[in-house]
Design a protein around this nucleic acid. Structure first.
Lengths: 328, 328
DNA sequence: CTGAAAGCGCTTACAG
DNA sequence: CTGAAAGCGCTTACAG
């Protein structure tokens, strides 16, 4: 059932059917009514592909992220998807695993489908997006990076001030009287580096020593447990541990408790993300809220503007907030 | 840059360009080489929309689920997406919230885009998919339901034996010497009902009484905490609590510990899903592995067969497994 | 107000 | 081996 069938049945031309369908141009009331009856009767729905052929748009955007199973990415992707759905766009989801080849494959596929826009979720795309093979693909559609920055003419950013978030945690521990503070960091994304720098900055402001006080570990609960063990065996005094992720902070907490360390009496622990992990943790984590929903919403608004070529878009930075739990 | 530009530059017809592009039909080696050079030079990529116009396919499938932020759905959606990507399909993600209207909106949008197939993730779609307004939309593309069943000619299921999973938990508690067992259930999906029936069955087999031993609560950590309080105040003896979800089990654990109950010495607790929540829980939860990755993979294989109209597809049921933690 | 025609960018029989 | 033409299902100037 296509527009020709409808036209024939209604005794009009396809142009007229198209007009009533899109409420465009002028159609006499009588004709309109007749066509609408036929439309209704056949519950006709125009083909989005054929429409896309003309308009060059399928009203679809692509969301590339590392792994939707990570709560922070899940929250952002969820919000992006819901917000675009409200705006009558569908979202193609791409789990790149942070891998260059995989990212390339996804970008080739979605640009071939002429997506209206692309959202890159995660600071890992700072590196991948700058790759000489990746970059030209990102020029084919407007791009917004959540928590990252790209040097492209049609790309904008919504940034989270990760460094500031970690300084908040450090200063909070200082106020709690902690003077021997460690930092547990994870992978090597721009975000991880910003957080570490935030730690250095916070410690400096508090006049504290950072020598041998940064522990690198895997971004898993087990990684956190190992980090706690490493700290306990370092020989250095420790009364506070700032973590770059809630998940590692949960592991750190477990590791400390197993070693008989009391939290927060002996050692304070902070996480990052204000994820559900922080609330499941026993005791509940003090953590940094990096507001993924807010970041995601701004990404959607920015990309929508870029797609509509409306004015007044610019990159934004969101400030995180400390959320008190029972570990500090 | 379209196929006409390429044809002109290579001095051939568009039919010939199409042939070398698709490696179809016959092209002389010389011509092929010439065309390929032009293709390469312009890094030409054919429009997927125009191709879709002819083939009636955009090589896209839709995944409808309740909420990607729930780990079990995230794991399934992740696996489905990755597996379809491997097969050169893109995935449109739809978070329906379990809502009928939202589901309708998504299905209208994706059928209009003529998706090649639809995966419904969650037993909530048993009800929604049978709705008289929803059902016709599901007839427009092959459908696979993860952990649910639909009565449609072109729809198949990959089922998880939730009831069996709960009987495993009950029997495990019995073997541990528990005789006063409660069940904490959540929402009213087919899956939740199957689990409750599994509880009844397991208890019956063990010859245990179930009167007033099913507690209904919200599917959140707080819901679990409240359930624990309710059980403790019920006046009934309790030495075992089987939960329908890891998240509520974590809450139950917290609630019990706060009341000074020892786990597992006084009361054993089991969860469901083998999610990361179970491992974060202190003590680590004994839980039921419902194998979301395996379910998802089978869904993809099934749907791929339906799309290719290859033979030999049928619905499957997966058996869950008990995973021992430290709460039993 | 309405219709004929061109155009969107491909693929695919059909001739030659 | 290669090209002209039709067709996929729409939208949109352009006439009338």
């Amino acid at each position: 059932m296509n527009i020709y069938d409808i036209a024939k049945e209604a005794g009009v031309s396809i142009a007229t059917v198209s007009r009533v369908l899109n409420n465009k141009g002028t159609v006499s009331a009588a004709t309109k009514e007749r066509v609408e009856a036929v439309l209704q009767k056949n519950s006709y729905v125009p083909s989005a592909i054929a429409q896309g052929m003309v308009s060059k748009s399928l009203r679809t955007v692509a969301v590339l992220t590392v792994d939707i199973r990570v709560p922070n990415y899940a929250r952002m992707s969820y919000t992006i998807e819901r917000e675009f759905s409200r705006r009558n766009y569908e979202v193609i989801l791409c789990n790149t695993g942070g891998d260059r080849e995989t990212t390339l494959k996804y970008l080739r596929a979605v640009t071939k489908k002429q997506v209206d826009g692309i959202v890159l979720v995660g600071s890992i795309f700072n590196t991948i997006g700058a790759d000489p093979e990746v970059e030209p693909l990102l020029r084919m559609a407007p791009v917004v990076v959540a928590n990252g920055k790209l040097d492209l003419p049609n790309s904008y950013s919504v940034l989270m001030d990760d460094a500031y978030g970690i300084t908040l945690a450090v200063e909070h521990l200082w106020e709690r009287g902690r003077r021997n503070i460690f930092y547990v960091r994870d992978m090597d994304t721009a975000s991880a580096i910003a957080k570490r720098d935030g730690f250095f900055l916070g410690m400096k402001r508090c006049g504290l020593d950072v020598a041998d006080r940064v522990i690198q570990t895997q971004d898993t609960m087990e990684g956190g447990i190992r980090a706690a063990e490493e700290i306990l065996h370092s020989g250095l005094p420790c009364d506070g541990i700032v973590c770059g992720e809630d998940l590692t902070a949960v592991g750190v907490t477990k590791g400390l408790l197993r070693a008989g360390v009391r939290i927060p009496e002996d050692v304070s622990v902070t996480g990052f993300n204000n994820s559900i992990y922080a609330r499941l943790c026993e005791p509940e984590l003090t953590t940094v809220d990096n507001k993924p929903e807010q970041v995601a919403l701004l990404c959607v608004q920015l990309l929508e503007n870029l797609i509509d070529k409306s004015d007044a878009y610019s990159s934004v930075t969101i400030q995180p907030e400390l959320v008190l739990g029972k570990t500090t």
